[in-house]
Simulated scan of single mutants.
Amino acid sequence: MLVYIVRRFAGMMVVMLLVAMVVFVIARVVPGDPAAVMLGSSATPEDIAALRGRLGLDEPLLTQFLLYLGQIIRFDLGESIFLNRPVAQALAERSELTALLTMMSVGIAMLIGLPIGILSAAKRGGLIDQTAVGLAMLAASIPSFWIGLTLIKYLAVDHAWFPVAGYGPPEADLMERMRHLVLPAIALGIPNSALILRFTRTSMLDVMSNDYVRTARAKGLPPLVVVLKHALRNAMIPILTVIGLTTAVMIAGAIVTETVFGLPGVGNLIVSAVLRRDYPVIQGALLVVSAIYVLINLTVDLLYAVVDPRVRY
């Protein structure tokens, strides 16, 4: 196991290096001069050139990239051009909101997708199965921002059951902040629950056709025991995989949701950085998100051995 983890971490380092290269190139090829954006339309060419020199933007691209890699090796994500503070600090200040939103969204997606997927597989070909598949296709085709705007209209504006937007006042406690995240979590969780539902149904159907499941039924075990103990446990590996991928996708999908609900999270920070051409924030945020994505994949791989003792690394 230890050798496997070491090899995976070595592979992660290679992946992160490639991500750093891609992020650096993308940030530089986007049209627009960050120095000109910062100084505004009234800036003179001399002012823009002076600011570019101070920011190191007048250096050759290779030199900029080597300096950037040196910062990453020192775990230094740089300093935000507009916020005038370290990128790591800016991300840490907004990470609580995005982490809570992601966990709540994943919880909602699992609460919807897992039970309905299991029930759909148990009732294969019936009305419940066909309805579940149809609802999954419908949920997958509806964008999260449309669901968010609909929830705001009916549950926040018309009935005032939930806040319209924001994350609460600075003195708000955890429960109040979570109340502000209920609608965004629903808007983000419903579309992603469709993928969990479909994978759960497919994986359960594959397992329920095996001999040991038929043997359990022949022994007269209750249907609930057969489905949950014998079938679901052996179908968990594909389900764990899709849950892990869904979690990573939700972190990226939170950008749109945070914008719709006016949430000051990491996604909102990334959008502002893109509009302002704040290179350090863009690069640092994408690196952190990529690292989280890779760590989630590693965690899911390690959970395979917990779910299925036959898995060995």
Score class of each variant (00 low, 15 high):
V213S: 04
A291V: 12
D173K: 00
M204W: 10
K229T: 02
R74T: 06
I255F: 06
N192Q: 14
L135G: 09
P264D: 00
A43I: 05
D308R: 02
L197T: 01
R94C: 04
A305V: 14
Y304L: 09
T247I: 09
V306M: 02
D173C: 03
G11E: 10
L114A: 11
L155P: 02
A92I: 10
Y212W: 05
R54F: 03
V207M: 15
M1W: 06
M12T: 10
G265L: 06
R201F: 12
S290F: 05
T150S: 13
R177L: 03
V281E: 08
V260C: 03
L67W: 12
I237F: 14
M137E: 12
G70T: 09
K229I: 02
Y68D: 01
P143H: 08
G56H: 12
G168A: 07
R201K: 12
T200D: 15
R94H: 03
L57R: 06
L127N: 05
L269K: 07
Q71D: 01
S272F: 14
A99N: 13
I118M: 15
T259E: 12
M204R: 05
L269R: 07
G11D: 08
L17A: 01
M110G: 07
K229N: 09
E258A: 05
I237N: 14
R177Y: 01
L174R: 10
L224A: 11
Y304P: 01
F145E: 08
I128K: 09
S141Y: 09
A305Q: 15
T131C: 14
M208Y: 11
D211I: 01
D33V: 05
A49P: 09
T150P: 13
R198S: 12
D308N: 09
A305P: 13
V19G: 00
L275W: 03
L39A: 07
L57V: 00
L119E: 14
A165E: 15
R8W: 01
V281S: 04
V15E: 04
L17F: 04
T44L: 06
I292G: 02
L2E: 13
I270V: 08
T259Q: 14
I251A: 00
M178K: 03
A90W: 07
L197M: 06
V242M: 15
P45L: 10
K153F: 10
A235N: 09
F162M: 08
L197R: 00
L240F: 03
M104G: 11
